[in-house]
Design a protein around this nucleic acid. Structure first.
Length: 570
RNA sequence: CGGGACUUAGCUCAGCCUGGUAGAGCAUCUGCUUUGGGAGCAGAGGGCCGCAUGUUCGAAUCAUGUAGUCCCGACCA
């Protein structure tokens, strides 16, 4: 490919708003062009990379017996009503009507479509297990797209779905996918951190996310430094250290105007760890507006995902003061002491409170707190569990390792779905004894464009991306220095020779100064750069430079094909 | 959905405070010169100053509204 014939334009400066290295370089290198918020046009160089990423993923999916399919992007709403997601998912699901006023959606994932396919195909246990996968657009009407290609509204995803007779069979296959994912990420040069992740309110038993650790990530991961623990912060567990004390009598103290944990602990000279924080949410539980009171140790923060998962509710909002007061609870001095659970008032107690003693808690009276509040003696609730957020400095659940929080980009996920979709959508088969059985499903996703962005985050310098050999848009970047006939002729001969040897050659034949070409070479990130200039050519030599190295070497022109072969191990 | 900012040439931005009809650098086109890390000179093309309404003799500039974009947070099967 000649640069003069390529549909590519580089930018000297980053467009306003681009902050992540991947965003800046993908725009500056002419790989992608933003069309609107969260919508990107992929230009030829970007498309070449995406296609190669798809090749890598396809090879690894086929290796674990996946079969490629393609499922529609636009789907009738009925399909989503069957699974229950039509109402369970919010505005992220784009709903529209077709020409005949039929309600439709743009798929955000393809569980419904694949389950529909499976229920028509599947009739006998003899057909199980199987896995199908596709590369297909997803549309998610993100409330906030950001970070260039990291979080977009429309994107191509590799999504795979497996069907099994037993949990054991799913477990075994899940492990194979896990291994396939490790191979995929290794081939694009990424060493992911694998964390346990939230399975959401749609059900499912176990899920892992493959994360690229990067300061620019949008997820927070909780990791043990010794590798013994890794989880998404949303669900990360931790060990609560408590020193048992004997309960002391409750004592009411005046704390005029002191409402926050910081104020109260300062005023009463007690450690925040000896205070009780009460966080109040409102939600819809059992079909009515419900107040959720969560009691935590003062130094902890509420873990909203944990609370939502415990209550099996899709959302929590900070409770309004009026609503709080209607239960006799006083904002700023709130406490579960003296408050009884009702059908529309749930009291949750974090383990830190249940296992500790003698907390300073609100008195539900303006200007007063209580000393020495103890769980069970002073208040009770059956809802006792892990409702706090793990942060840096906490101990891992076994109490042995220190945890720390890092940011990461999710580049893949695997999920034991269970029978959520197969059951609601009547996907069944007959077993040996003629009994109807529901297949157990797993699903497995990788965002292709996001992975390209993640590769740049993972592999770049100050001047541009450094593409891994497996997914580079070209194998070798041939740069003509000057336009002397002998230089042009030598370049054309080299291009033809390398083409014939099966290498993808990018030939910069532009009438540009060397500096311009070298800057662009850095933005295009091709692993091998060969520069042909008059001086070295007179000695039968060219310049050989690897993108990852700073310096070039002068090598015989005749050796370049062999060098390429050995570089690419062909 | 909250909080903040921005919107002027293909890109990055100045001009706005103090109203008088549009600027720079880069990019593009022409010519010359130059040729090893985004050269120089001369010339040319390119603008509903996001949109709407208002104030004014006159609005890129002031006011109100609205849309788009970006950042932080919420949300994220």
């Amino acid at each position: 490919m000649r640069v003069t014939q390529s549909v590519v334009k580089t930018l000297r400066e980053a467009p306003a708003g681009a902050e992540l290295p991947s965003h800046i370089f993908l725009l500056r290198g002419g790989y992608v062009k933003q069309l609107a918020s969260g919508l990107y046009s992929i230009m030829p160089f970007g498309k070449r990379i995406l296609q190669k990423i798809e090749v890598v993923i396809r090879e690894e999916m086929n290796r674990i017996d996946g079969q490629e399919v393609e499922l529609p992007l636009s789907q009738p709403a009925e399909l989503w009503q069957e699974s229950g997601r039509y109402t369970a998912v919010g505005s992220e699901l784009l709903r529209f009507k077709d020409r005949t006023e039929h309600p439709m959606v743009l798929a955000m994932t393809h569980e419904e479509a694949v389950t529909d396919m499976a229920r028509h195909y599947l009739s006998s246990y003899k057909q199980l297990p199987f896995m199908v996968y596709q590369f297909q657009l997803k549309f998610r009407d993100e409330p906030r797209s950001r970070g260039g290609l990291v979080r977009v509204r429309e994107f191509t995803m590799k999504d795979g779905y497996s069907f099994h007779r037993t949990d054991e069979d799913l477990d075994a296959y899940y492990q194979r996918v896990y291994t396939a994912y490790e191979r995929i990420f290794q081939r694009v040069g990424i060493r992911p951190v694998v964390v346990k992740s939230d399975t959401g309110i749609m059900g499912g038993k176990l899920a892992h996310e493959f994360m690229l650790e990067t300061g620019h990530g949008e997820d927070y991961l909780i990791l043990a430094r010794d590798g013994s623990y890794a989880a998404n912060q949303e669900i990360a567990e931790f060990h609560r250290e408590t020193v048992p004390e004997s309960p002391l009598p409750v004592e009411k103290v005046a704390t005029p105007g002191y409402k926050t944990i910081e104020d109260v602990s300062g005023f009463l000279s007690v450690d925040a760890k000896k205070t009780m924080k009460v966080v109040l949410y409102e939600t819809e539980h059992a079909k009515r507006k419900t107040l959720v009171m969560v009691a935590l140790r003062g130094d902890l923060e509420a873990g909203e995902i944990k609370i939502r998962n415990y209550l099996k509710v899709p959302w929590l909002l900070p409770a309004q003061d009026d609503f709080i007061r209607s239960f006799g609870i006083v904002p700023g001095y709130a406490s579960p002491v003296g408050i009884a659970e009702r059908s529309d008032l749930l009291i949750l107690s974090d383990l830190s409170i249940a296992e500790g003693n003698n907390f300073v808690a609100g008195a539900n009276e303006e200007g007063f707190h209580l000393r020495h509040v103890n769980f069970r003696r002073d208040f009770q609730t059956p809802h006792c569990g892990d409702f706090a957020k793990a942060v840096s400095g906490h101990k891992s659940p076994d109490g042995k390792a220190e945890l720390h929080a890092v940011r990461g980009i999710e580049i893949g996920n695997i999920f034991k779905l269970g029978t959520k979709f197969s059951e609601s959508m009547n996907c069944a088969y007959l077993d040996e004894s003629g009994q109807h059985k529901i297949p157990i499903m797993g699903c497995y996703g990788i965002g292709v464009g996001r992975l390209m962005a993640a590769v740049v985050e993972n592999s770049h310098d100050d001047f541009g991306p450094i593409w891994p050999e497996e997914i580079t848009p070209f194998h070798v970047h041939l740069v003509a220095i000057g336009k002397e006939p002998e230089v042009v002729e030598a370049c054309e001969k080299l291009q033809a020779e390398w083409d014939a040897a099966g290498f993808e050659v990018l030939f910069d034949d532009r009438d540009e100064r060397p500096g311009v070409k070298f800057k662009d070479a850095d933005l295009w990130g091709v692993p091998v750069r060969v520069a042909v200039g008059k001086k070295t050519l007179a000695e039968g030599c060219v310049e050989w430079k690897l993108r990852k190295d700073k310096e070039h070497t002068v090598v015989p022109l005749s050796s370049t094909s062999d060098r390429l072969k050995s570089h690419y191990r062909k």
